[in-house]
Write a protein that binds this DNA or RNA. Structure first.
Lengths: 212, 212
DNA sequence: TTTTTTATGTGACAACTATCACAATGTCTC
DNA sequence: GAGACATTGTGATAGTTGTCACATAAAAAA
């Protein structure tokens, strides 16, 4: 990991900050599907995403996992960026959607970098703001849309990250949307008749244009 | 508005920051029910809440208003605190629940204070984090709970802010929860038979203990 | 290949919520 | 008080989603 690479992914940070990041960060590789942060787990470091896609989930008391948003390379897990004494445990579950590479920075540097590097707190704040907007969109979806629309949105998001060939089962989708397998199967079938997608076993091929 | 008062509401800020806030902030009074920020409206200033309770809503394309969370005295509208060039318009609707007093600080001070006052960016960041957690709870409610539970949660929140005598119609509640008046009426009736509340015309009296 | 496992299809049904129509009741205005 | 208006009550019905039972089909393992 060198400054060049880092700058490509995280532009507009200060020169010395890049050096500090490289000096104190530890590379962590995770396999697709692996959970890298669980609800209730103590957060010891801030995660910068170098490569791959991470999925964030909210969990209910029975362990059902509700998908909230994706994090891409060049982004950071906002919730892990603020070292507040009372908030040391994770509120979310993070899983790797693809194989991914992370840069873990011990939390003790957060406070320090906040005052030392203007570009760092700008990064933290824009991160928070962007994640906040994602959450608002998530709320829109579940508050205002039916399952058919939500499924369409969901598939489009997945397509954006993984391409038009989605290797997932109906059950996987149902879990992410907190729905049931049968409901998703039927809605997918409808989409197939409308020529939005072709349904294979273990995979879905998205055909419909992503309309922006 | 003097430093004393400000310090009570917003503790742990720096002495000079209190002075700056007083110097550049403008007091704004709003009546209960009044909208103080609409979706799409340009944000020109950061709002600190001095007195009263503000309700935040998300709107859909048909203008339906979905309640997301409350802001109390001593809090700030997080979304109005970051002056990002691309994000100048509001994503949310803010309405006064009670008569309220706000302190509006022109956005140009945000950048400046961020670097000048450590306590300011700490305040901004904890604000963001707290609002973020509120949003996550809101998502939990709509993703995992049925309307009866959501109504109960909603009423408890209102009781916390306004006391046990809630002056609102069933229609008001239905709007906030994006439900319909009849559904809310029926659920309220059930709660009445369970002795959780007494239903009057134009008001609801909450009896059940708020169990924290 | 045969067996086993996993994924998907399908009908019936139940639960929850939304909608409609209209009645009943309380409040306000004249 | 009479009428107008807003609020609430209630039954009927429909739409959406969740659940159950079981069939079918495809992939993986033996």
């Amino acid at each position: 990991m060198d400054t060049q690479q880092l700058e490509q992914l995280f532009p507009n940070l200060q020169e010395n900050l890049y050096k500090d990041i490289i000096k104190h960060g530890t590379i962590r590789e995770v396999k697709a599907g692996e959970a890298l942060l669980r609800v209730g787990q103590t957060i010891r470091s801030t995660m910068l995403i170098i490569d791959g896609v991470i999925k964030l989930y909210r969990e209910d008391d029975e362990g059902k996992e509700f998908f909230i948003y994706h994090l891409d390379a060049g982004q950071a897990c906002s919730l892990s960026m603020v070292c507040a004494a009372k908030h040391e445990t994770s509120e979310v579950l993070a899983k790797a959607l693809t194989d991914a590479t992370l840069l873990a920075i011990p939390l003790e540097f957060m406070d320090q970098w906040m005052s030392k590097y203007k570009s760092w707190y700008q990064f933290v704040i824009t991160s928070y703001r962007n994640r906040f907007e994602e959450l608002l969109k998530t709320i829109d979806a579940i508050a205002f849309s039916n399952m058919d629309e939500r499924l369409e949105d969901y598939l489009k998001k997945q397509v954006k990250k993984l391409g038009v060939n989605l290797k997932m089962t109906h059950q996987d989708i149902a879990n992410d949307l907190n729905s049931s397998r049968e409901v998703i199967s039927r809605l997918l079938k409808k989409m197939e008749t409308k020529n939005w997608a072709v349904i294979h076993r273990n995979s879905i091929e998205w055909i419909k244009a992503p309309n922006h």
